[in-house]
């Protein structure tokens, strides 16, 4: 039970999942920032700018923070345990 709770709260993902998360968050935030500036400038409204940023942040949190299965597809393969040395 405690290990299950730890799993839930820790939300570990594997190495390629981490790389994917990094890429997704950087691309999303940069693109959202540029899009927010352009949309706000075009429509002359700062609320649109910060609305777009806020939406992007909420979506990104949902997308990236929980340990979705897509981030756990490449678990680390450990070598088989070496035989204990002969006594």
């Amino acid at each position: 039970m405690s290990s299950f709770l730890q799993e839930i709260t820790e939300g570990k993902i594997d190495y390629s999942g981490q790389a994917l998360v990094d890429l997704i968050s950087k691309v999303t935030l940069s693109a959202a920032g540029i899009a927010a500036f352009c949309a706000g400038f075009a429509l002359q409204d700062l609320r649109i700018t910060f609305g777009i940023i806020g939406l992007a942040v909420v979506t990104l949190t949902l997308l990236v923070v929980p340990p979705w299965p897509i981030f756990r597809r490449h678990p680390v393969k450990w070598l088989p345990a070496a035989k204990a040395k002969a006594e």
Partner: peptide, 14 residues
Amino acid sequence: MHSIFSRINNGSAF
């Protein structure tokens, strides 16, 4: 980026 906390931390920093 391995745990929930570090993902939140990295994301908010960027």
